[in-house]
Protein backbone atom coordinates (compact mmCIF):
# COMPACT_ATOMS: atom_id res chain seq x y z
CA UNK A 1 0.00 0.00 0.00
CA UNK A 2 1.31 3.45 -0.91
CA UNK A 3 2.22 5.72 1.91
CA UNK A 4 0.75 9.10 2.42
CA UNK A 5 3.19 11.89 1.64
CA UNK A 6 3.19 15.27 3.27
CA UNK A 7 0.92 16.84 0.74
CA UNK A 8 -1.60 14.16 1.23
CA UNK A 9 -1.55 14.72 4.93
CA UNK A 10 -2.28 18.40 4.90
CA UNK A 11 -4.97 17.86 2.35
CA UNK A 12 -6.54 15.19 4.44
CA UNK A 13 -6.63 17.30 7.56
CA UNK A 14 -8.38 20.04 5.75
CA UNK A 15 -10.92 17.81 4.18
CA UNK A 16 -11.61 16.11 7.44
CA UNK A 17 -12.44 19.51 8.79
CA UNK A 18 -14.81 20.11 5.97
CA UNK A 19 -16.35 16.74 6.46
CA UNK A 20 -16.53 16.09 2.77
CA UNK A 21 -13.35 14.15 2.61
CA UNK A 22 -14.21 11.44 0.13
CA UNK A 23 -16.50 13.57 -1.92
CA UNK A 24 -14.13 16.31 -2.84
CA UNK A 25 -10.95 14.64 -3.87
CA UNK A 26 -11.74 11.64 -5.94
CA UNK A 27 -9.96 11.62 -9.26
CA UNK A 28 -11.94 11.36 -12.43
CA UNK A 29 -15.22 11.72 -10.64
CA UNK A 30 -18.22 13.63 -11.77
CA UNK A 31 -18.24 15.78 -8.73
CA UNK A 32 -16.13 18.84 -8.41
CA UNK A 33 -15.32 21.57 -6.11
CA UNK A 34 -16.80 24.27 -8.16
CA UNK A 35 -14.98 27.36 -9.25
CA UNK A 36 -12.99 29.89 -7.42
CA UNK A 37 -15.06 32.99 -7.69
CA UNK A 38 -13.07 36.17 -7.22
CA UNK A 39 -15.80 37.92 -5.35
CA UNK A 40 -15.01 35.79 -2.29
CA UNK A 41 -12.34 37.21 -0.09
CA UNK A 42 -9.28 35.03 0.08
CA UNK A 43 -8.55 33.81 3.58
CA UNK A 44 -4.88 33.30 2.82
CA UNK A 45 -5.31 29.73 3.96
CA UNK A 46 -4.30 27.62 0.97
CA UNK A 47 -4.88 23.93 0.46
CA UNK A 48 -4.04 21.44 -2.24
CA UNK A 49 -6.86 19.54 -3.88
CA UNK A 50 -7.14 17.08 -6.73
CA UNK A 51 -9.19 18.15 -9.69
CA UNK A 52 -11.37 15.88 -11.77
CA UNK A 53 -8.57 15.43 -14.32
CA UNK A 54 -6.21 14.35 -11.60
CA UNK A 55 -4.18 17.55 -11.24
CA UNK A 56 -3.02 18.78 -7.91
CA UNK A 57 -3.84 22.47 -7.52
CA UNK A 58 -3.60 24.91 -4.68
CA UNK A 59 -6.68 26.95 -3.86
CA UNK A 60 -7.76 29.25 -1.10
CA UNK A 61 -10.05 27.77 1.53
CA UNK A 62 -12.56 30.56 1.04
CA UNK A 63 -12.95 29.60 -2.60
CA UNK A 64 -14.01 26.05 -2.00
CA UNK A 65 -17.63 25.12 -2.52
CA UNK A 66 -19.02 21.63 -2.57
CA UNK A 67 -20.46 20.43 -5.88
CA UNK A 68 -24.06 19.68 -6.70
CA UNK A 69 -25.48 17.88 -3.70
CA UNK A 70 -28.00 15.48 -5.21
CA UNK A 71 -25.57 14.27 -7.80
CA UNK A 72 -22.95 13.85 -5.18
CA UNK A 73 -25.15 11.64 -3.04
CA UNK A 74 -26.07 9.44 -5.96
CA UNK A 75 -22.48 9.13 -6.97
CA UNK A 76 -21.29 8.49 -3.45
CA UNK A 77 -23.98 5.86 -2.90
CA UNK A 78 -23.01 4.02 -6.05
CA UNK A 79 -19.31 4.20 -5.33
CA UNK A 80 -19.86 3.15 -1.74
CA UNK A 81 -21.69 0.01 -2.74
CA UNK A 82 -19.23 -1.03 -5.41
CA UNK A 83 -16.02 -0.79 -3.47
CA UNK A 84 -12.52 -0.74 -4.85
CA UNK A 85 -11.92 -3.34 -7.56
CA UNK A 86 -9.10 -5.82 -7.14
CA UNK A 87 -8.62 -5.25 -3.44
CA UNK A 88 -9.21 -7.41 -0.40
CA UNK A 89 -8.52 -5.36 2.66
CA UNK A 90 -7.23 -6.95 5.85
CA UNK A 91 -6.12 -5.71 9.23
CA UNK A 92 -3.60 -7.27 11.58
CA UNK A 93 -3.67 -6.30 15.23
CA UNK A 94 -0.52 -7.01 17.21
CA UNK A 95 -1.81 -7.45 20.75
CA UNK A 96 1.71 -7.67 22.12
CA UNK A 97 2.18 -4.01 21.24
CA UNK A 98 -1.08 -2.54 22.52
CA UNK A 99 -0.58 -0.39 25.60
CA UNK A 100 -4.11 0.96 25.73
CA UNK A 101 -3.13 4.41 24.46
CA UNK A 102 -6.61 4.69 22.93
CA UNK A 103 -5.45 7.12 20.24
CA UNK A 104 -7.14 4.80 17.75
CA UNK A 105 -10.49 5.09 19.53
CA UNK A 106 -10.19 8.84 19.63
CA UNK A 107 -9.32 9.17 15.96
CA UNK A 108 -12.14 6.84 15.05
CA UNK A 109 -14.77 8.64 17.11
CA UNK A 110 -13.79 12.02 15.73
CA UNK A 111 -13.69 10.86 12.11
CA UNK A 112 -17.07 9.17 12.32
CA UNK A 113 -18.77 11.78 14.51
CA UNK A 114 -19.45 9.34 17.32
CA UNK A 115 -20.57 10.10 20.84
CA UNK A 116 -18.23 8.93 23.61
CA UNK A 117 -20.25 5.78 24.33
CA UNK A 118 -20.37 4.75 20.68
CA UNK A 119 -17.56 2.55 19.45
CA UNK A 120 -16.66 1.48 15.98
CA UNK A 121 -13.47 0.46 17.67
CA UNK A 122 -13.32 -0.55 21.29
CA UNK A 123 -10.15 -1.36 23.22
CA UNK A 124 -11.15 -4.09 25.64
CA UNK A 125 -9.36 -5.40 28.66
CA UNK A 126 -9.37 -9.15 28.15
CA UNK A 127 -8.76 -11.70 30.85
CA UNK A 128 -6.68 -14.73 30.04
CA UNK A 129 -8.52 -17.43 32.01
CA UNK A 130 -5.53 -19.80 32.03
CA UNK A 131 -2.65 -17.46 32.83
CA UNK A 132 -4.78 -15.18 35.01
CA UNK A 133 -3.34 -12.18 33.24
CA UNK A 134 -5.02 -9.52 31.19
CA UNK A 135 -4.20 -7.85 27.91
CA UNK A 136 -5.63 -5.05 25.78
CA UNK A 137 -7.56 -5.97 22.69
CA UNK A 138 -8.75 -3.41 20.14
CA UNK A 139 -11.95 -4.78 18.63
CA UNK A 140 -13.32 -3.44 15.36
CA UNK A 141 -15.83 -4.82 12.93
CA UNK A 142 -14.22 -8.04 11.72
CA UNK A 143 -15.37 -7.48 8.13
CA UNK A 144 -16.28 -11.14 7.95
CA UNK A 145 -16.26 -12.94 4.64
CA UNK A 146 -19.39 -14.72 5.88
CA UNK A 147 -21.02 -11.82 7.71
CA UNK A 148 -24.06 -12.76 9.86
CA UNK A 149 -25.16 -9.11 9.94
CA UNK A 150 -25.46 -8.95 6.16
CA UNK A 151 -27.51 -12.16 6.00
CA UNK A 152 -30.14 -10.91 8.42
CA UNK A 153 -30.54 -7.35 7.11
CA UNK A 154 -34.07 -7.13 5.68
CA UNK A 155 -33.37 -4.22 3.33
CA UNK A 156 -29.81 -4.70 2.10
CA UNK A 157 -28.73 -1.66 4.08
CA UNK A 158 -25.63 -3.47 5.28
CA UNK A 159 -23.70 -5.31 2.61
CA UNK A 160 -20.36 -6.82 1.70
CA UNK A 161 -18.34 -5.12 -1.04
CA UNK A 162 -15.99 -6.65 -3.56
CA UNK A 163 -13.01 -5.36 -1.59
CA UNK A 164 -14.13 -7.28 1.49
CA UNK A 165 -15.46 -4.31 3.43
CA UNK A 166 -18.83 -4.58 5.13
CA UNK A 167 -20.58 -1.21 5.02
CA UNK A 168 -23.86 0.34 6.11
CA UNK A 169 -26.05 2.61 4.04
CA UNK A 170 -27.71 4.77 6.66
CA UNK A 171 -29.93 6.29 4.02
CA UNK A 172 -31.64 2.91 3.78
CA UNK A 173 -31.32 1.40 7.27
CA UNK A 174 -34.72 0.99 8.94
CA UNK A 175 -33.26 0.66 12.42
CA UNK A 176 -34.53 -2.85 13.21
CA UNK A 177 -31.19 -3.72 14.84
CA UNK A 178 -31.31 -7.33 13.69
CA UNK A 179 -27.67 -6.90 12.62
CA UNK A 180 -26.79 -5.74 16.13
CA UNK A 181 -28.37 -8.90 17.51
CA UNK A 182 -26.71 -11.11 14.91
CA UNK A 183 -23.14 -9.84 15.28
CA UNK A 184 -21.25 -12.16 17.66
CA UNK A 185 -18.47 -9.56 18.00
CA UNK A 186 -20.80 -6.80 19.30
CA UNK A 187 -19.20 -4.59 16.68
CA UNK A 188 -22.25 -2.49 15.90
CA UNK A 189 -23.60 0.59 17.57
CA UNK A 190 -26.84 2.49 17.15
CA UNK A 191 -27.78 6.16 17.03
CA UNK A 192 -30.31 6.02 19.86
CA UNK A 193 -30.64 9.80 19.92
CA UNK A 194 -29.78 12.74 17.69
CA UNK A 195 -26.14 12.22 16.62
CA UNK A 196 -23.28 14.42 17.71
CA UNK A 197 -23.00 17.70 15.79
CA UNK A 198 -26.13 16.89 13.82
CA UNK A 199 -26.95 20.57 13.32
CA UNK A 200 -23.47 21.32 11.98
CA UNK A 201 -23.55 18.26 9.74
CA UNK A 202 -26.99 18.96 8.34
CA UNK A 203 -25.67 20.19 4.98
CA UNK A 204 -22.97 17.61 4.55
CA UNK A 205 -23.62 15.07 1.83
CA UNK A 206 -23.77 11.56 3.17
CA UNK A 207 -20.80 9.38 2.35
CA UNK A 208 -21.36 5.77 3.33
CA UNK A 209 -17.64 5.07 3.17
CA UNK A 210 -17.21 7.40 6.12
CA UNK A 211 -20.78 6.88 7.36
CA UNK A 212 -21.04 10.58 8.05
CA UNK A 213 -23.31 12.34 8.79
CA UNK A 214 -24.63 9.85 11.30
CA UNK A 215 -28.40 9.59 11.39
CA UNK A 216 -30.72 9.12 14.31
CA UNK A 217 -32.36 5.71 14.34
CA UNK A 218 -29.76 3.96 12.21
CA UNK A 219 -26.95 1.52 12.90
CA UNK A 220 -23.31 2.43 12.46
CA UNK A 221 -20.04 0.52 12.68
CA UNK A 222 -16.41 0.36 11.61
CA UNK A 223 -15.99 0.87 7.87
CA UNK A 224 -12.25 0.09 7.71
CA UNK A 225 -12.10 3.82 6.85
CA UNK A 226 -13.16 3.04 3.29
CA UNK A 227 -13.02 6.76 2.52
CA UNK A 228 -9.30 6.79 3.38
CA UNK A 229 -8.55 3.63 1.46
CA UNK A 230 -9.97 5.18 -1.67
CA UNK A 231 -7.08 7.65 -1.55
CA UNK A 232 -4.49 5.04 -0.79
CA UNK A 233 -4.31 6.04 2.84
CA UNK A 234 -4.41 3.98 5.99
CA UNK A 235 -7.51 3.91 8.21
CA UNK A 236 -7.84 6.60 10.88
CA UNK A 237 -7.20 4.22 13.77
CA UNK A 238 -4.21 2.59 12.09
CA UNK A 239 -2.35 5.83 11.47
CA UNK A 240 -3.27 7.23 14.88
CA UNK A 241 -1.68 4.39 16.83
CA UNK A 242 1.58 5.41 18.53
CA UNK A 243 2.60 1.85 19.43
CA UNK A 244 2.71 0.02 16.12
CA UNK A 245 -0.27 -2.18 16.95
CA UNK A 246 -1.98 -2.04 13.59
CA UNK A 247 -1.03 -3.34 10.20
CA UNK A 248 -3.34 -2.74 7.29
CA UNK A 249 -3.21 -3.76 3.68
CA UNK A 250 -4.37 -5.82 0.77
CA UNK A 251 -4.57 -9.58 1.00
CA UNK A 252 -4.31 -9.89 -2.77
CA UNK A 253 -0.95 -8.13 -2.73
CA UNK A 254 -0.02 -10.07 0.41
CA UNK A 255 1.33 -6.84 1.88
CA UNK A 256 0.41 -4.95 5.01
CA UNK A 257 1.76 -1.68 6.32
CA UNK A 258 2.27 -0.81 9.95
CA UNK A 259 0.45 2.42 10.78
CA UNK A 260 3.14 3.67 13.15
CA UNK A 261 6.41 2.59 11.57
CA UNK A 262 5.04 2.74 8.00
CA UNK A 263 6.97 -0.41 7.38
CA UNK A 264 5.40 -2.70 4.79
CA UNK A 265 5.71 -6.44 5.39
CA UNK A 266 4.49 -9.61 3.77
CA UNK A 267 1.10 -10.53 5.24
CA UNK A 268 1.54 -14.30 5.03
CA UNK A 269 4.91 -14.16 6.79
CA UNK A 270 3.59 -11.88 9.51
CA UNK A 271 0.68 -14.20 10.19
CA UNK A 272 2.73 -17.37 10.10
CA UNK A 273 5.66 -16.20 12.15
CA UNK A 274 3.49 -14.79 14.90
CA UNK A 275 0.87 -17.53 15.20
CA UNK A 276 -1.91 -15.19 14.13
CA UNK A 277 -5.50 -16.08 14.86
CA UNK A 278 -8.97 -14.73 14.18
CA UNK A 279 -11.73 -14.14 16.73
CA UNK A 280 -13.98 -17.15 17.28
CA UNK A 281 -13.10 -18.93 14.03
CA UNK A 282 -15.43 -21.77 15.12
CA UNK A 283 -18.40 -19.58 14.26
CA UNK A 284 -17.47 -19.71 10.59
CA UNK A 285 -17.70 -15.97 10.09
CA UNK A 286 -14.24 -15.79 8.46
CA UNK A 287 -13.02 -12.44 9.77
CA UNK A 288 -10.71 -10.13 7.81
CA UNK A 289 -9.06 -8.99 11.02
CA UNK A 290 -6.15 -11.07 12.32
CA UNK A 291 -4.71 -10.93 15.80
CA UNK A 292 -1.13 -11.59 16.83
CA UNK A 293 -1.16 -13.01 20.37
CA UNK A 294 -0.26 -10.87 23.40
CA UNK A 295 3.20 -11.48 24.81
CA UNK A 296 3.34 -13.16 28.18
CA UNK A 297 5.88 -10.75 29.64
CA UNK A 298 3.68 -7.82 28.82
CA UNK A 299 0.48 -9.45 29.99
Amino acid sequence: MNMANKNDKSRRRFLQKLGIAGASTVAGSALLLQGCSDSNKASGNKVKVLTADNKLVEVDVAHLKPGDKIQDLKYLQKRGREGIPGKKFVMVVDLAKCKNARKCMKACQSAHQLKPEMHHLNVLEMEDPVKKTSYWMPKTCQHCDNPPCVSVCPVDATFKRQDGIVLIDNERCIGCRFCVAACPYSARTFNWTEPKNSDKMADVTYDMELNVPQKKGTVTKCAFSADQLRHGKLPYCVSACPNGVYYFGDQNEDLVTNGTTKKTVRLSHLLEENAAYTLMPELGTQPSVYYLPPRESEG
Binding site: P154, V155, A157, R172, C173, I174, G175, C176, R177, F190, N191, K216, G217, T218, V219
Partner: peptide
Protein backbone atom coordinates in the same frame (compact mmCIF):
# COMPACT_ATOMS: atom_id res chain seq x y z
CA UNK B 1 -38.02 0.45 14.49
CA UNK B 2 -35.46 3.22 14.63
CA UNK B 3 -36.79 4.58 11.35
CA UNK B 4 -40.51 3.80 11.09
CA UNK B 5 -40.64 6.40 8.30
CA UNK B 6 -38.68 3.94 6.18
CA UNK B 7 -41.07 1.03 6.65
CA UNK B 8 -41.66 0.88 2.91
CA UNK B 9 -37.99 0.02 2.40
CA UNK B 10 -38.91 -3.49 3.51
Amino acid sequence: MGRPDRLLNV
